[in-house]
């Protein structure tokens, strides 16, 4: 129950714009962004949609895949489409937290320390191969993700709005990576997988890269203010009592059947994602269908199973099959 109350809090959260769009405008906006990104990314419509919805639902995305399937390209094209500042952090074993957050630099002229913002101060931040950096550095990013603020030398600075992290995680070379702590994975709204393109899609992909790369000519379809207003609209999408109860039941079911089930933060994320999906679908209210669509990508990575054969995906699939809607 407390889970759903906090969505109410989220609704009243002040935003930079303080304005909001009508639902059809949000629907159109989503469609535009998706279409725009699709000009660069071949296939993967569902993943694009998930990323856009996470953007609207104030969530961060973890892309877990092998290198070279377009993770970075996806993040870049989304950032370009919404006309937001884009920064990229390449995580390496020797990356320091200050490399992420920024440092106080002594200005010789003013004889004062001046804050030099790190790459995290962007609207859309791509954290590439996040699992290559040691946990301390990861934590610097993860604090920013959760709090939407950065604290250096006792001083707290708010990050720009919107702030969305799209992190990628290298699924190969497990010996040379630091696994993300379970608590930190929880801070991503969604964990997505791109996967290899279909053969015909790949041919199309190759055709597009001949000559100029389409990312170079990609134009924004909206601006930052509109995006903020759309996020405000999404937060106002109605979540009826039956849906809240359904989400609670789903979470409870995973807790029952897994070693560690979905956390309350997970249920909040699920509701936000569902809200965003409802708005993207042109609805002012969340349906159980929205929850069901979002549940696999929002819940799976938050579940830890004792059984090696049954991962989070299976647990969530079972829960969706088992838990009654009303």
């Amino acid at each position: 129950m407390t889970d759903t109350n906090s969505t109410g809090d989220a609704r009243t959260e002040p935003t930079a714009a303080g304005d909001h769009l009508e639902i059809p405008a949000v629907e159109r906006l989503c469609a535009d962004i998706e279409a725009n990104v699709s000009r660069v990314i071949v296939g993967h419509e569902d993943v694009i949609e998930h990323v856009v919805i996470a953007l609207l639902g104030r969530g961060h995305v973890l892309l877990d895949d092998v290198p070279g399937v377009g993770k970075t390209m996806l993040a870049r094209s989304v950032a370009t489409s919404v006309d937001c500042s884009f920064s990229r952090i390449q995580f390496t074993p020797d990356l320091l937290p200050t490399d992420v957050t920024g440092v106080n630099v002594f200005n010789q002229q003013t004889r004062e320390f001046e804050f030099q913002p790190g790459p995290v101060f962007g609207n859309i931040v791509l954290g590439d191969e996040i699992n290559r950096a040691p946990p301390k550095t990861q934590a610097a990013l993860l604090e920013a993700m959760e709090e939407e603020q950065v604290t250096t030398d006792g001083q707290t600075r708010t990050l720009p709005t919107p702030f969305t992290v799209i992190a990628t995680q290298n699924a190969v070379e497990p010996n040379r990576t630091y696994d993300l702590p379970f608590a930190e994975v929880d801070r991503f709204m969604k964990k997505l997988r791109l996967g290899y393109p279909e053969p015909d899609e790949e041919a199309d992909l190759l055709g597009r890269t001949v000559g100029d790369h389409p990312i170079e000519s990609l134009e924004p379809v909206t601006d930052r203010e509109t995006l903020v207003a759309a996020r405000e609209t999404v937060s106002r999408v109605q979540v009826a009592q039956p849906v809240r109860e359904y989400v609670t039941r789903l979470a409870a079911d995973t807790r029952e059947h897994a070693h560690i089930g979905v956390s309350p933060r997970g249920t909040i994320s699920l509701l936000r994602a569902a809200q965003a999906r409802a708005a993207a679908d042109g609805r002012e209210y969340v349906l159980p269908d929205d929850v069901q669509t979002e549940a696999p990508v929002v819940m799976s990575h938050r579940i830890k199973t004792a059984d090696r054969d049954r991962d989070g995906d299976a647990i969530v699939a079972d829960a969706l099959e088992r838990v009654p809607i009303e």
Partner: peptide, 8 residues
């Protein structure tokens, strides 16, 4: 039905 149950 959806509107009656979940919506406005």
């Amino acid at each position: 039905y959806e509107r009656a149950i979940y919506g406005t």
